[in-house]
């Protein structure tokens, strides 16, 4: 089994999930609470990776961060090397690719919070930010966990975006799913099967966790 690829994959998925927790929460908060009339435009952009072929998304990200774009130039001026075909570039692409998997469960959880509770918090003198941390977050625990776990799992299995933006560099951007593809190309079915099974078990385990956390029947006893 290609342990380097496994390590790269888990590093990528963990960092993506962490980044999405930090970026996704404010976006989801804005999506749930903004009364802006054109909000749906932003919502649609966030959801775009759900329907866009990963190669298309990867292509645009590649162009956007490439040495000829302002963003890419800015990055290589500061860091000293270009962003495409590096782990950092891949991380950036993964964040975009998994954005809806974090933002949508977060926003759904926020929308479940009774507005009357939020108003009660305001009248008790607690600011909007304070209300978010003291009230909305604890009430949205399950939804936030779902978002983090789903974006982690989704990143584990990404293929098209990795290939477009990351290339296939051992120890840097070669992830498990690409490794499987390579093994099959080399007709090494036994190696591919091992890695595939690992990915299957991890993905299934992660989903088990999500569905178990969201089971309403259980919330009765852990609270006491």
């Amino acid at each position: 089994m290609n342990w380097t690829a496994i390590w790269v994959t888990f590093k990528l998925a963990s960092l993506t999930a962490t980044a999405l927790l930090l970026i996704g929460l404010p976006i989801a908060y804005w999506v749930s609470f903004s009364k802006w009339r054109w909000k749906f435009i932003v919502e649609s952009v966030v959801a775009l990776p759900l329907v866009l072929p990963p190669t298309v998304l990867g292509f645009y990200i590649l162009v956007a961060i490439g040495p000829h774009s302002p963003v890419g130039q800015f990055y290589s001026d500061i860091v000293g090397h270009p962003l495409p075909f590096t782990f950092e570039g891949l991380l950036l692409a993964s964040i975009f690719y998994s954005l809806p998997f974090a933002v949508q469960p977060f926003a759904a959880a926020f929308e479940q919070v009774d507005r009357k509770l939020i108003e009660a918090s305001w009248t008790l003198g607690v600011s909007q930010v304070g209300t978010f941390f003291k009230l909305i977050l604890p009430l949205s625990k399950a939804g936030i966990l779902t978002g983090v776990v789903l974006s982690f799992a989704h990143t584990l299995g990404e293929f098209g975006v990795v290939l477009m933006v990351g290339g296939n560099i051992e120890g840097e951007t070669r992830t498990v799913s690409i490794d499987i593809y390579d093994e099959v190309q080399a007709l090494n079915y036994v190696g591919a099967a091992k890695t595939a099974l690992l990915l299957l078990i991890v993905s299934y385990g992660v989903l088990l966790l999500v569905y178990a956390m969201n089971r309403k029947v259980w919330t009765a006893w852990p609270q006491k």
Partner: peptide
């Protein structure tokens, strides 16, 4: 003036107690 800055006590009809 925001509700936070009015120094009021407010009780909604269904009390709106915080479940957590």
């Amino acid at each position: 003036v925001a509700p936070q800055d009015r120094h009021i006590g407010y009780m909604a009809q269904d009390y709106a107690l915080f479940p957590p």
